[in-house]
Design a protein around this nucleic acid. Structure first.
Lengths: 147, 147
DNA sequence: TATTGTTATACTCTATAACTATA
DNA sequence: TATAGTTATAGAGTATAACAATA
C-alpha cells in the first residue's frame, strides 16, 4: 500500500531517527546504571511504579517470555526494590509491586530522564507542538489529540 | 544550563519519542531475526558492509568492550558472513570484512529497513523536511545542513 | 612499555520445555 | 483441561582481568 520511499530526504530522516534511537537507548542505560540497575530492571521498575502487575502482564509489556520475568523480579526483590504479593482474586497470580525504596528509585530514575528532555530544550514551544504532531502521525495516532 | 522543561507538551513529546524508539528497536530486532541474526550481529554486519574495520574500531562503534566483539565476529564468521583479514600496516590488527554472502545479507537487511521508512509514508515532503530539521536540532546538529 | 586481539570468568537477558499449584 | 508462575537448560551479550603477539 504505502509505497516505500527511498528519496534522499526520507533516507536522511530515517538516519536521524536511528541517531535519536541510539542516543535515547544509550542514555537510558546510563541512567539505569547510575542506580546499579540493568535496562530491563529499570523498565520493569518503571512499569510497576505506575501500577502493580501480575508477572504475566509484565512479560506482555516487555514483549518477552514470562519465564524471564521471574529472574528480573527476583533480582529486584533481592535488592528490596520490589515485592511479590498474592492476588486475592486468583491464588495462582503473583502481583509484583514496588516497595517504598523501589518507588523512590523509580522516581529518581524518572527524574534522570532529563536526558530525554534536554535535547528538546533547543526547540521552541511551536517547534515542540509541530514535532508532537509529526510523531503522532508517524505512530499512526489520530492527528488531533482529542483529550 | 538548559532548563529542564516539565510542561505537558514537552512530556508528551518525550513519551512519543519513547514510543518511536521502542517501535524502531522492536522492528530492527525482527528484521535481524528474519535473517537468523541477533541485533548485535546485524549491527556489526551493517557496519562492516560500509567499510572493513579493526576489531577495536567495531567495539568503539558499538560502545562495548573489545572482548565482546571477538564473540560476535566469531559467530558471524562461523556462518560465513564475515572474515578476518590481516592488516598489512600492523600485524597486531585484524580487519573484519564481510564475505560476498555477508554483503548480500547486509543489503537485504538494509532493504528490510522499510519498517523505518514506512511510518514516514503518511508524511508529505514538507512534513518530512520539517521533521528532518527538528531532529537535526534535537541532535545538536547545524540547522542548515550545508552538504 | 604500550597496544591489539584473545581467552577465561561471571552475570544478565533471552527462549524453550517441563513442572506445580491453582482454576 | 487450561492458566499463572516457576525451574532447568542453553545461547548470546556484557564487563573485568589476565594473556600472547606485535609495535
Amino acid at each position: 500500500m504505502a509505497t516505500t520511499r527511498t528519496d534522499p530526504l526520507t533516507l536522511e530522516v530515517v538516519e536521524l531517527i536511528g541517531a535519536v534511537v541510539a542516543r535515547y537507548y544509550e542514555e537510558y542505560e546510563q541512567a539505569a546504571a547510575a542506580h546499579s540497575l540493568t535496562g530491563a530492571q529499570a523498565r520493569v521498575l518503571g512499569l510497576l511504579s505506575l501500577d502493580p502487575l501480575p508477572m504475566r502482564r509484565i512479560a506482555q509489556k516487555l514483549k518477552c517470555e514470562p519465564s524471564n520475568v521471574t529472574g528480573i523480579v527476583d533480582r529486584l526483590e533481592a535488592r528490596g526494590l520490589v515485592e511479590r504479593r498474592p492476588d486475592p482474586a486468583d491464588r495462582r497470580v503473583k502481583l509484583a509491586a514496588p516497595t517504598e525504596k523501589g518507588a523512590s528509585t523509580a522516581r529518581e530514575l524518572r527524574a534522570s530522564l532529563d536526558f530525554a528532555r534536554e535535547p528538546l530544550a533547543g526547540l521552541s514551544d511551536t517547534d515542540r507542538a509541530v514535532l508532537r504532531d509529526l510523531l503522532r502521525r508517524m505512530l499512526g495516532m489520530d492527528p488531533a489529540g482529542l483529550s
